[in-house]
Computed example of a mutant assay.
Amino acid sequence: MRLVTGIAEVGDGEELPYNVVLKIQKKWNRYGDPDSWRREYDLYASDLDEVFTDAFRWPKCYHAEINNDNTQIWMEYVEGVSGLDMTVEMYEHAAEELGRFQGRIYVEKYVVLQSLSNLSEVDLVKKTYLHYKTWKEVYDYIRYDNCEIPKHICNMLIDVDDNSDEIWLRIEKLPIVFCHRDFWITNIFCIDKKIRLIDWDTTGWGYMGEDIASLIADETEIDYMVECYHKCIPAYYKGFSEYADISHISDNCVRELILVMFGYRLIEGYKYAQSPDEKELHLNTLQKIYDMGL
């Protein structure tokens, strides 16, 4: 990803400055999703742009091409508040706008969405969780008596494993929606109450709440996590319900989604951390997820 700047000549010799982002993606293999490396190119080449509104959209694409094993996308430069500079109110607003976006698509069933061939599968999160469970480096680690991670956190994850069949039955009762699947703070830009969302390479069909789980737990400001959990879920459901009747949903499963999406990933991060500060960050994140259940 690079920012390209310059001066463009327009009619009558007039010159205008420009900022354009060039994103180059080389082929690589994501577990369970081998074509994700080219997905953003495929989506920009489709008519997906018609499903967005000015309140919630991706950056405009000026030019896209694919050459053998890499893609190049020239897109709009987006400037706004992102990452750890986001406030709780911005998290909440992003959740509500995401709800509106997914709710509208869920009801209106755009034809373009039915024609897209390169989307991640509905059960991608489940497959990734089950794959982590087979990795003894993390699965066995939280079960060792001498594990450095506090026992209550280990037990939180072990309980998920012990009850995973029941948890997935509950999750799979949720509506299937069009998910970004990388809805975390560095991909979200807040601009005067408008949301711009980048990096669509994991996009596909998934269960309602997957993206909110990412917003709450994926490298969110630690001090905001529990507050975001309590504020972003109602905001998301509020936005979604503007288009669809979801009053029958009494179990949003967001904390369970957080645990299956990020539990073992955080254990991996803790175990292989390169510094004490990094280790502490992963442990504190796990503690916050535990606190959400209190």
Results as ranks from 00 to 15, higher is better:
Ile105Cys: 07
Val122Glu: 10
Ile142Asn: 00
Val107Ile: 12
Val125Arg: 01
Tyr91Trp: 10
Asn118Glu: 09
Tyr77Ser: 13
Met90Ser: 03
Glu108Ala: 03
Glu89Gln: 13
His152Met: 06
Leu98Trp: 12
Trp135Ala: 06
Val88Ile: 14
Ile153Ser: 02
Glu121Pro: 02
Glu79Asp: 14
Thr128Tyr: 04
Asp145Tyr: 03
Tyr129Cys: 04
Ile142Gly: 00
Val125His: 03
Asn146Met: 00
Leu84Gln: 07
Asp123Trp: 03
Tyr106Asp: 07
Leu116His: 14
Leu130Lys: 11
Ser115Tyr: 09
Leu84Tyr: 10
Tyr129Lys: 01
Glu108Met: 06
Tyr129Arg: 02
His131Trp: 11
Ile149Gln: 00
His152Asp: 10
Leu119Val: 05
Val122Met: 04
Met75Glu: 13
Val112Gly: 04
Gly83Tyr: 08
Trp135Arg: 15
His131Thr: 02
Tyr106Gln: 08
Arg100Tyr: 13
Val88Tyr: 02
Tyr129Pro: 01
Lys109Met: 11
Ile105Val: 10
Met75Ser: 13
Tyr110Leu: 07
Glu89Lys: 13
Asp145Met: 05
Met86Trp: 01
Arg104Trp: 02
Glu92Asn: 10
Leu113Glu: 04
Arg100Asp: 05
His93Thr: 14
Glu148Asn: 10
Gly103Leu: 01
Asp85Gln: 09
Leu113Met: 11
Met86Ala: 07
Thr87His: 11
Lys109Tyr: 08
Glu137Arg: 08
Arg104Asn: 09
Val88Gln: 12
Ser117His: 05
Asn118Gly: 03
Leu124His: 04
Val78Thr: 10
His93Pro: 00
Lys151Ile: 15
Lys151Gln: 13
Arg143Val: 07
Thr87Phe: 09
Met75Gly: 03
Arg104Thr: 01
Tyr144Ala: 12
Leu124Glu: 01
Val112Cys: 15
Leu84Val: 05
Leu119Lys: 08
Met86Arg: 05
Val138Glu: 08
Val111His: 15
His131Gly: 00
Gly99Glu: 13
Asn146Ile: 03
Arg100His: 12
Thr87Gln: 14
Asn118Lys: 05
Gln102Asp: 07
Glu79Lys: 14
Arg104Asp: 05
Asn146His: 13
Val78Ile: 15
Ser115Met: 10
Tyr77Trp: 12
His131Cys: 02
Met75Thr: 02
Glu97Val: 09
Met75Asn: 05
Tyr144Gly: 05
Tyr132Met: 09
Val78Tyr: 09
Ser82Val: 11
Met75Cys: 10
Ile149Phe: 12
Tyr132Asn: 02
Ser120Arg: 12
His131Asp: 09
Glu92Gln: 13
Val107Met: 13
Met90Ala: 04
Glu76His: 04
Val111Tyr: 12
Asp85Thr: 06
Tyr106Ile: 02
Glu97Ser: 14
Glu92Arg: 13
Asp85Gly: 06
Lys136Asp: 11
Gly99Ser: 10
Tyr129Asn: 04
His131Phe: 05
Arg143Ala: 08
Met86Ser: 07
Arg143Glu: 09
